[in-house]
Design a protein around this nucleic acid. Structure first.
Lengths: 199, 199, 199, 199
DNA sequence: AGTTAAACGAGACGGTACGTCAGGTCTTCAT
DNA sequence: ATGAAGACCTGACGTACCGTCTCGTTTAACT
């Protein structure tokens, strides 16, 4: 969606940038629910059609605005220690996605994806799947190196690792903290769900 | 919300029931996004005001309709085996919340909660928190019985257990299956995230 | 169109009145071409839908507003002298339809009727035909009384009598004057189109 | 307006012709009300700017298209008999302006003139005034020859002669017929509005 | 023949208004 | 005196054209 710029010139890019900015600004000011294409257009000093020419819905604009704004580095490091690397990446991810102002906005985006299949598809293709692929690749390497059980279903492992974050972000009233990452990783890698060791 | 029935008589209950039914029917037919109070009123043969008198928003009606429709038993059994009991309850829960037609509707409800704080609060109070409390109680019992590590943060453990389901329901395009419950429980209780046992 | 008031109460009449007033005011201020339903609604302090509920187009609102505002007496007197009676009625009519502010507005209405068949039909039914019928009746009486030739096609005679006014109003840049009525009547009844009498 | 061709070459004339044709075609297909500069440009295979370079508004394009298409001979013959000559010219004029497809289009043009002063001015200068001037000249000759009363106000006489046609074209639902010309001329020149001759 | 400047098609652009839909409030009437 | 019906104001929707403005591309006149 970002790349359907008109091939004609650089005007398109300028408009796009101001629309993205206006979208984020407004979303933070009034919340996603009260965001409107009309409002974005007015704030960006742009005709409504200029928005509809590029995006099919308010959700799509918002998705682009949010994703392009958090184009930070969420890649996995490789130190040879899968636990340390996971902790590092997840801490970065949660710091980005759970801290103001992006936490509520990202939650709103995931929420909108439940109502709009197009947003869901784009969110998956543009953000979720790439992140999953990178994570799976790192886990696979660790598994090959003997750091993870060969019986581990990596996709399920990933859902478990990240699931706690989504569970808390989307269902609990309290904000998610980066410290929760440590709790998750310690629980999964050190403590375990089984009965006490000494038993 | 269900209980602010008019004290006058039993007519209120009838209206409420027909509104709930109309809401669910419409939600399944056109999807949550295209649901409207206007449509619900028309379908239920009821004035709009009769709905607004009871609920503050379409999300609230939908929440009531959905929760009251899945008023099934999601309690935890007690057989003395925490793994078996968790498996039993989670299987029931996922069977209910992930299978058609409730899967997408429940996802839509969680999605709406991201946009509407009132819905979020009600969903939490009426459904999420009670379920969490019951789960925590069961886990606590297991911990006291020595079936779970004393180091386990039960709230985090719960987020991990259920998180995988929410992660997959809300982010992945594929439907969630009850078989995933077994995978989660096996992964957490049997396989573990650590290096292979024999290592 | 005026009478499709809701049978429910008197609110409708109030809204209708304020819409009519706003329409006329705006039409005089900015001209018919720049009149808009949106503008009328804003000026009348009314939702657009309240207008669309009653009228199908801006032309229809304008027609109602204009016709109901000039609900003056355009009936024919009966003094026994057809020439005097025609002069009287036509003078009244032209004084109303040709003088500010109604002259240009009435011309605009006739103009709109050329673009919108619904406006044309309503204008004809509500205004043109009733006026024609009254005029024909008066002319018929005069014919029966021997004041008009029996060979006279009354419908054509009427078109000729009034035609000059419409010709000048719609085609000439200059304003139409009530004095033109005398000229028309004198030309038709006194001077005639034939060669000079003495010839 | 037709003659502000580019001094550069003959391309301009080609474009103008295709624009005129597209305008008339579209006007007949969808009616004047739904005509748009955008539609004309698309139909003519021409950029919008090419139209705006030549004409200030859709009304102006339409006026040019219509007038240049009916560039027939509406001049007055001179046989020495004013009644015959008037009958001849008016029959030609009405045959042109009242018969399909030009009748409704010409009415639409007169209608548009009521909304757009520029169209009104151009219509007057380019069509109405020249026709009036020719008619006045012919009437003046007849008056000088003793075929018309010296008391006759020729401008008013003209308005009366043509007025019936405009009255019927613009106000009545029925189509105007060339036979009406005979009725008008017979009424004015033979029958007269006065009382029966024998009286 | 090569250069240059206009006219050109295409269509993006900021706007205005369209006609529709739903939100949430308020009034009327029937039961 | 409760509730169905629905009028009402508001605000946003997504669309259609407006008239202006670049874009590159012909195209014809003038070097």
């Amino acid at each position: 969606m970002t790349d359907n710029l008109p091939s004609r010139g650089s005007r398109g890019a300028d408009r796009t940038a101001s629309i993205m900015r206006a979208t984020l600004d407004l979303a933070q000011e009034v919340g996603y629910a009260k965001l409107s294409v009309e409002g974005i257009a007015a704030r960006a000093g742009v005709g409504k059609h200029t928005i509809y020419r590029r995006w099919p819905s308010k959700g799509a604009v918002f998705l682009d605005a949010l994703l392009s704004s958090l184009d930070h580095d969420l890649n996995f490091p490789y130190t040879g220690d899968i636990v340390a690397d996971l902790r590092e990446q997840m801490t970065n991810a949660v710091a980005l996605l759970a801290s103001p102002p992006f936490g509520r906005l990202y939650a709103a985006l995931v929420g909108e994806a439940q109502h709009d299949p197009a947003v869901a598809a784009t969110l998956y293709e543009r953000f979720v799947k790439p992140q999953i692929d990178k994570a799976i690749a790192r886990l696979k390497t660790a598994q090959d190196e003997g750091q993870l059980s060969l019986d581990l279903d990596l996709r399920m492992a990933l859902a478990i690792l990240y699931g706690a974050y989504y569970h808390n972000l989307l269902l609990l009233p309290d904000a998610v903290s980066v410290k929760d990452v440590d709790a998750v990783i310690d629980t999964l890698f050190k403590i375990g769900f089984g009965p006490p060791q000494g038993a």
